[in-house]
Structure formats: C-alpha cells, structure tokens
Design a protein around this nucleic acid. Structure first.
Lengths: 244, 244
DNA sequence: GAGTGGTCTAGACCACCAA
DNA sequence: TGGTGGTCTAGACCACTCA
C-alpha cells in the first residue's frame, strides 16, 4: 500500500506555502522575469512567519523556479534573460564554452500522437501535435539535427512562420508567446549510427556515431509539454553531466 | 581582478562550520556510515546556535556528503551501503531499472601519467599511476568496457589480486581499503565508433556506435582522484540526465 | 520516555542595492 | 536612506526511532 495513504496527512507549513506560490505562478499573477512580493508581504498574506515563507522560497529557488537577488528581491525564473539562456543545454565545445548556436528551420507540420508520444506527453492517442525539424549549426557547421513534438492544444497558432521569425530559444518562445514555462527536463542518452535522413542533414555518412538525446520537458506540476530528439555530432563537442 | 580579493573577507558562520565539519571528515574523526555528533553537541563544540549548525549540515546533506535521518542522527555518506550503491551510475536499462552489473577484470598494471592525465589528476607528468581495465556485463552480455586510472600514491598496494577479490564497487573499495571517499564526479559524454580493442572486448564490429563516458571523480576539497573511460553499449540501455 | 532531526516563530542585525 | 534578501539566535513544539 502507498505509504502516503496510511500515514497521517501531515504536510509542513512551508510546503503548503510552496504550493500556494506555485499556484500564483501558474495563474500568472507574477510573470517571468518579474519580482514576486517581498518575504514580509508574503508572510502577511499567508499569515505565517517570514522564516516559513523563506523556507518555501528557498526550496523553489533550489529548483530554479524562483531566483533570489540580495538587496533586490525574488524573481520568477525565465528562459529569456541572457544570463539564464541555454539553461538546459549541456553540450559544450571541447574548449569548455557554451556558445550560441545558429538555428535553421527545416519543417513545421501538424501530426497526430502515436501511442508512445501520447504516453510521453500525457495526451490521447491520435491527438493533434505539432512537429518541427531544425538544424543547429555552430560556426557554419551542422551540429545537431533536432526533431521537436509538442501537443497542439497549448500551442495554438504555432506555425512555421511564427517559428522562423522567432529569434531565440524555443523555451523563450513558449514562454513569451504561449505562456508555457518549462521548469524541468529529463534526457535519455544513447549512441546511435546516423540514419539516411540525419546523415544527409548533417553532411555525414550513414552509420556515423551520433549522440542521441531524447528530452522530455515539464511545466509546473510536472506536466510534460515537449518531446525532443536531438542527434548530435560529438567530435568537437561533449555533453557535460555533473554527479553528486 | 578576482572579486573575492577586492571584497571584504566576509564568510557566513555556517560556512565556517561547514569547513570545520569537512576537516573532521578528512581527518577521519567520523568514518563513512557512522553517525556524527548531534546538532546540539556540535553547536556546543563550535559555540554557535543549533540553527547555524543545522544550516551547515543542510548544505553538506544537499551535497550528499552527509545523510540525515530523522529520529536517528546524521551519518557520513558511504558508497558501501546497499541503498546508496551505484550512486554515480546513470546508466539504466530501457525498463528503467538500475541493475547490478557483473565485474570481470582484464588487467591491472603500473603506468606513468602523460601530460593529459597529469593535468586531469593534478599530479606530476610521469608520476606513477595504476591502470585497470575491466568488462562490466549484464545478464551475461558485455555492456561496458572500462578503463580506470588512479594515481599510485594514495592507492599503494592496489594490485590485480586485491582488485579481483573485491566484491563491490570500486568506490566502495577505495573507501574501505584506502580511506579515499569520492564525493563528486564530472562526466563528459560523446558518441564514438568502437575501436578494435573495444570491439573485441564487447563482441562487436569495429565502428559500432558506443557511448563514451569520461569521468573524473573528486574527493574532499575537489581533489581529483580517479579518471575513468567507459565505453557503453546503449542499444538496451540509456544514460539518464535530469535537468533543472 | 529519552534523544534525534524537523518545523515554526519572533526578533536582531548584516550585506547589498537603488534612488 | 529605506527596502530587500541573508545570517544568527533562542526557544517552543512536533515527528520519528529505539530501547
């Protein structure tokens, strides 16, 4: 039996505060990049001590959902700000730098979720999706062949034109145009041989070893909102993972 | 100029406590798996409040250096305990399970650090090293061809015999036999084609795509103590990375 | 029941930032 | 100079573990 069900429904106060703050974030009361009320104001609103609000904010800050800045305030995390750009990018050149990649869109089409995609994105099988393919290049050299699938419903109006004219990361667009904020992602990595399509796109021979990065991104409440498959050339770059 | 040098040398109390606790760990005052003194005892020892000790322990706990257990005490993290075994293993089968791998040693020889290894392990070029090769298999099938290099000095007496008779992870052995505790690691991933040696070891054709995982492990004080290169077959397995 | 870590409070003071 | 987050304290009470 689930332990949660037998144990009494004890939840620390600061976790409840955390939930309430998260709900305000979902409702859009505070938008990405904006400051939330000060710890004292929130303490007054929720009728708890400042220390308890602090602990809730500490936790959200550790999850990169809020950003604290001493002397200034606490801000809603965003994928727009220059400093946090490429928050989810783990691929770095052998010199150690994370550099800006050039974005070249190949296609943007409507699709329908197959069984796997339905399960992954928690939508109904056959539900409408939007499928994007693009090529990311570095210094003129193709580096990643990316396939992106999102459910159509939350991204109504996302079309090729919209995608092509956007100058920034996909996450930044999701956030600014559709109000969908990604807060977490899971990546599954494998080594694969390039298939014909990818080999052509990247200018390689079929079977050339590529790093396959399958990513699922989640918005508030651990709701999956994007599936992505990136096939990466890793002769000049590597994927950095820190273990603790 | 380094910001640390111009700003006053202000360090919060709890960080100083953290350093003192870490020093006790290095000195071996509390051994892996053992409990450290209670928060009140430490508060008395360091002449600070319990809350300040708590904050220091919180931080070490977040870094997986200490483990808190409500009602029992705070314990020194170990690679021996069953529950924390495979702490650094990110490779999971497609079914999602982390399973025990069989260990088959191939060789264990003395070597000398080349320029790259010297830089990586922060030892002198030409310093003595120990080089181990092994094969990790899962359900009888070769999965990872592993090459491990450690500086000879801290691992005096590490020989083939010792390695082969040890029944557990390398980290568990480092800890139990040599008192070297790894607390952190960095991994750099690439996709590569199998070379002849690896292809033979894993029973593949040359050029077969493999996930190359280069790992450097650190002990207290961010001192690098092990270099490792694992070449992994990823048709049935994948490497899981969580992004926040 | 005694001892441990976990939560919560209230208040003081410090470091940082902007106006 | 006033407001923000960051630190530190002291004390109360709660939840968990084990003898």
């Amino acid at each position: 039996m689930d332990k949660q069900l037998v144990s009494p429904s004890y939840r620390p106060l600061y976790e409840q505060i955390k939930v309430m703050i998260t709900q305000s974030l979902i409702a859009g009361e505070w938008r990405p990049g904006e400051a939330i009320p000060s710890e004292f104001e929130l303490a007054a609103r929720y009728k708890v001590s400042q220390g308890t609000v602090r602990k809730a904010i500490d936790s959200l800050s550790a999850e990169n959902i809020l950003i604290r800045r001493q002397g200034k305030g606490t801000f809603v995390a965003t994928h727009n700000a220059d400093v946090i750009k490429l928050r989810f990018l783990r691929l770095t050149s052998v010199t150690g730098q994370k550099e800006l990649l050039q974005n070249q869109f190949i296609s943007c089409e409507k699709g329908k979720a197959n069984a796997y995609m339905a399960k992954t994105l928690q939508i109904k099988a056959g539900a409408s999706t939007i499928e994007i393919k693009r090529l990311l290049t570095f210094s003129g050299r193709p580096l990643i062949y990316d396939q992106i699938i999102v459910p159509a419903a939350p991204f109504k109006g996302l079309k090729g034109a919209k995608v092509e004219e956007w100058n920034g990361s996909m996450y930044s667009m999701y956030e600014s145009v559709f109000g969908v904020r990604m807060i977490r992602a899971e990546e599954r990595l494998k080594a694969v041989g390039a298939d014909r399509e990818t080999a052509n796109a990247l200018g390689l021979k079929e079977g050339f070893p590529l790093l396959s990065v399958e990513r699922v991104s989640f918005t508030y409440g651990d709701k999956p909102m994007e599936w992505r498959l990136g096939l990466c050339l890793t002769d000049d770059h590597h994927y950095l993972s820190e273990l603790e």
